Structure formats: C-alpha cells, structure tokens
Amino acid sequence: MNIAILFFGIASIANVSGAEKVFVDMANRFVKEGHIVYSIWNDEPGVVPYYSFLPKVRQVNLGLGKIKAPIKYKFIREVAKGLHLNVTNYVDRYKTEKICQSIQEKIKISDIDVMICYEFNSIMVANKLANGKIPVVAMCHNSVEAQIATLTPLQREEASKVTAYQVLMPSFVDKAKKLLNTDIYYIPNVVNPIPDNAIADLSADKTIYNIIMIGRIDRYQKRSLIAIKSFLEIAAHFPNWELHFYGPITDSKYKKEIDEYIESHDLHHQVIYEGITDNSIGVLHDADIFAFPSAFEGFSLALTEANSMGVPAVGFSSAPAINELIEDNVTGFLAKDERDFTQKLSALMKDKKMRIQMGKSAHQAMNKYSPDEVWGMWLRLLNRLVAENK
C-alpha cells in the first residue's frame, strides 16, 4: 500500500508529546511492513522532528510555516463565534486550500491508496484531496468529549465524510457514533513491552521512595497541582518519600502557581520539578507510584508506560480513558475526588506489598497493547478499506 499520514494540527514537529510520537512510530512500523509511507506535516523549513523517522519513510515538511489568512476571514470567523453562527470557517478553508496546493506540488495524489488524518485540520485536507476516491481514516487522540464533541455542527458534518474514524478506548465507540455519521473503530495506542526482568523493583528497600508524575504543566487537563497538594498534605508523615514531576511548561501562570504553593507548603523539599525528560522509561524504572491527576485522556502513553514498567497508579474515576486503563484496586486506584486521591496515595505509600502486587498486575495488563496486536489491527483495517475501494 501507498499510505499518506497527515498531521497539521501541531505547533511544531519538534515537540515532545504523545501524538507526535505515535505519528512517527506509525510511519516507521508501516515501512517495516513493506509499505510506502508519506509522513506529511507543515512546519518552518528545516525543522527536525523530535522523534526519528526511519530512512525509508518519505518525510514531507510542506515548509509553509504559520499560514496567515486574510484579516477579513478572521473577522468573519470571530463574529460567527461571538454570535454562535453555524457558518463556514473561511480561515480554515483558506489554510486547507494552501496546504492542498502544496501537497499536490510534492506528491502524486493518484498514487495514494489510503490517507490517515491525525486531527481535524488534516481531515479537511484529506477530504478535499481524496474527493471521495481514496479511503480516509481519521484518528481521535484524546477523549471523544475533548476532540469530537467540541466540533461545530459543520465540522462534524465534514468529519462524517471520512471512511472510518478511529477511537482509543472501547467506551469511546458508542460516544462517537452519537456525534458522527461514519464507521467508528476501536484501536488503542501501542504500549512497548518491558521484559519481566527489567521492570521497576518495588520490593527494594530504599533510602528515598519516589512518586513520579509525567505530563505537560497544564491547568485544565493534566492538573499537576492536584497531586502535589495531595502529596504535601501527607508528606510530613512520609519523610523518606519524594514527588518528582516532569513535562514541558505549556501554562506559565499555572507553573507559577505550582511554584508558589511548593514554596509555602513543601517544608522539607520533597517535591522536585525535573523539566522535560527524554528518558521516561529510565525515570519510571526508579518509581514506586505513578500519580496521574488528569481530568481526561485519550490513551495516556505516560500512564501505560508506567503500568508496563510495573508501577501502580492513582487517577480519577471520573476521567475518561484513565478509568478504563487503571483497574481499580487491581492495577492501582481510582479516586472519587481530591480528598480520596490523597487517601489512595497514602494507602499505597504505606503498603509495600500492595504496591508490589498492583505493579505486577499493571505490568501484565499491558500485554494486550503490544506492537504486534495494535499495528495488526491497523493494517487489517487499512487493507480492508483499500480492497473495498478497489
């Protein structure tokens, strides 16, 4: 197959985040399987991807940089937003036309067998290029509530034109079917397996035990401060425990709020911000508990990496995806609210045997997300769609 993978809803391909990693991993796996893959994105000329493509992947950076639509289109868009009008977004349409023109200058569209879109911007481009003649598969990289339910009626109409829409959790299928008029498929993300002899040793006696939190510093989704407050509420009772949190700062005001809270409440310097890590597996190998206070997720790579490493996690029962990835009282705890989060964290910190047992269960639970299983699901879907189209 000739596969085009499109990703236009990012600030830069040099970003360190889950969607960019999946974008590169997918391209690499498909070329390993013998397919021709075009990975297409738009960035400033010469920007190097953070994650490495294999040499056989045909990398296409359109090099247009930030596309600036005419001011009149922006004015119409803002008026429509303010009045809640369901009208054409001329800014999106302008950008779509520019991107389509650039792609057609670089790739022969008739050679493509199937297109995969990483977000709504790519859906608009793929639908226009395919013109009903090439199968288009759209991906949902977050919860349905966060990515599909937030689309306008016109955007959902556009999204419903794709041949198939992929979601990350089984429960997302029915949710998506209520919002879109196309076929919905469940395919999770890949969780790279950790050998049994390489997982975190939760039985070891340590001078310092570690709670790890990995995720961008973001007030509305990742909510790092919730876990920090929970830990510091009980930290005086656990002098040999520390909380280390990692991730890019995408909300500087929120980071300042976190810093101020730590300064006034962390009496024994037990909370440490470590910045961005490019070695999450190494960090998790030294973890004893994974704290994950997100409000919602699609399929968290950080959480599943922690589970694969054999580290139990604490999350919220109200959080989509998290409440399916964490099996309550088996692979970790699902808290009802912030007070319960503190209590669950304390329970795990007190009980090493519980941590060990939950960690083993978490490690075993990740087998169903192995690369062979997940990429097999993808290739079966793509092969079927291409065969039906021909």
Score class of each variant (00 low, 15 high):
residue 6 L to Y: 04
residue 6 L to T: 01
residue 13 I to Y: 01
residue 14 A to N: 14
residue 17 S to W: 11
residue 18 G to Y: 04
residue 20 E to V: 15
residue 20 E to A: 13
residue 23 F to S: 07
residue 24 V to C: 04
residue 30 F to N: 01
residue 32 K to H: 09
residue 33 E to N: 14
residue 37 V to R: 02
residue 38 Y to N: 13
residue 41 W to E: 04
residue 42 N to T: 10
residue 43 D to S: 13
residue 44 E to H: 11
residue 45 P to T: 07
residue 48 V to R: 12
residue 49 P to V: 07
residue 49 P to A: 09
residue 52 S to G: 03
residue 58 R to I: 15
residue 60 V to F: 07
residue 61 N to T: 06
residue 63 G to S: 07
residue 70 P to D: 05
residue 71 I to T: 14
residue 77 R to E: 15
residue 79 V to I: 15
residue 84 H to E: 13
residue 84 H to N: 15
residue 86 N to L: 06
residue 89 N to F: 08
residue 90 Y to V: 08
residue 96 T to S: 12
residue 97 E to Y: 07
residue 98 K to Q: 13
residue 98 K to I: 13
residue 99 I to G: 05
residue 100 C to A: 14
residue 103 I to R: 01
residue 109 I to Q: 07
residue 111 D to I: 00
residue 111 D to C: 08
residue 118 Y to N: 15
residue 119 E to S: 13
residue 120 F to H: 15
residue 126 A to V: 01
residue 126 A to E: 00
residue 126 A to M: 00
residue 131 N to P: 02
residue 134 I to W: 06
residue 134 I to N: 09
residue 134 I to F: 09
residue 135 P to Q: 01
residue 140 C to K: 04
residue 141 H to Y: 12
residue 145 E to C: 01
residue 146 A to G: 03
residue 152 T to H: 08
residue 156 R to D: 11
residue 156 R to W: 06
residue 161 K to V: 11
residue 162 V to K: 05
residue 163 T to L: 09
residue 167 V to Y: 02
residue 171 S to P: 00
residue 172 F to Q: 10
residue 179 L to N: 05
residue 180 L to N: 06
residue 190 V to P: 05
residue 196 D to H: 11
residue 200 A to G: 03
residue 201 D to R: 12
residue 203 S to L: 03
residue 203 S to D: 12
residue 206 K to T: 12
residue 210 N to A: 08
residue 210 N to K: 15
residue 215 G to Y: 07
residue 215 G to A: 10
residue 215 G to K: 07
residue 224 S to I: 12
residue 227 A to K: 05
residue 228 I to K: 03
residue 232 L to S: 00
residue 233 E to N: 15
residue 236 A to M: 00
residue 237 H to G: 01
residue 240 N to T: 15
residue 243 L to Y: 04
residue 245 F to C: 06
residue 245 F to A: 02
residue 249 I to Q: 03
residue 250 T to F: 10
residue 251 D to I: 09
residue 254 Y to K: 06
residue 255 K to P: 01
residue 256 K to F: 03
residue 258 I to H: 08
residue 259 D to S: 14
residue 262 I to H: 00
residue 265 H to Y: 03
residue 267 L to F: 11
residue 270 Q to F: 07
residue 270 Q to H: 10
residue 272 I to T: 12
residue 275 G to Y: 06
residue 275 G to C: 10
residue 278 D to G: 10
residue 280 S to N: 13
residue 282 G to I: 04
residue 283 V to G: 10
residue 286 D to T: 12
residue 289 I to C: 05
residue 290 F to S: 09
residue 291 A to G: 02
residue 298 G to Y: 09
residue 300 S to G: 03
residue 302 A to P: 00
residue 304 T to S: 04
residue 305 E to A: 12
residue 306 A to Q: 05
residue 307 N to K: 13
residue 308 S to T: 01
residue 312 P to Y: 03
residue 313 A to Q: 02
residue 318 S to G: 11
residue 320 P to S: 05
residue 321 A to G: 11
residue 322 I to A: 10
residue 322 I to M: 06
residue 324 E to M: 03
residue 324 E to T: 08
residue 340 D to P: 03
residue 343 Q to Y: 09
residue 347 A to G: 04
residue 347 A to T: 14
residue 358 M to N: 06
residue 360 K to C: 12
residue 364 Q to F: 09
residue 365 A to E: 12
residue 367 N to Q: 13
residue 367 N to F: 10
residue 369 Y to D: 08
residue 371 P to F: 04
residue 377 M to P: 04
residue 381 L to P: 01
residue 383 N to I: 10
residue 383 N to S: 14
residue 385 L to M: 11
